[in-house]
Amino acid sequence: MNNVIVGISEMAVSNTADDVLTTYSLGSCLGITFYDTSLHVGGMIHCMLPLSQIDAQKALENPCMFVDTGTTKLLKEMFALGCRKSSLVVKIAGASAVLDSKGLFKIGERNYTIFRKILWKNSMLIHAEDVGGNISRTVRLEIATGRVTIKSGGVEKEL
């Protein structure tokens, strides 16, 4: 098994059966996985912020930082490998919240909302999600099977 680590504002796409894509400690960030069930190609991205308009220059340098530009980039790379929208399974995790009564730090919720909008525009659906709450999550995607697992507070479960 080959562990491919996806850092904050990074993405990875693989069609190597041996690979497991992993992203650690998602807080308000959104971890997105796409998996093509017929080609066994998987992609993962760890987006930090919802919209690229906050910093156009940064979005050019590093589109993976933002949910809007990052999702588009990940989809493009997957399509380039022959993936089709109709066979993509979408699973997401993260978007948690910190204890902030007035919601100034609702970055997680905004990340989630923007992602849903993008999928809706692309006529795609979220197949499974583990989002929100006050917890930190680690996500893995096995390229051979498409299995996605979430680990939080020492407990691992399949998504």
Binding site: S25, G27, C29, L104
Partner: peptide, 17 residues
């Protein structure tokens, strides 16, 4: 830093703003 998941550990999401 905690909101972004950097060094969150067991405590990071348990603080009050």
């Amino acid at each position: 830093s905690y909101a972004e998941g950097i060094g969150t550990g067991i405590d990071g999401l348990g603080y009050h703003l």
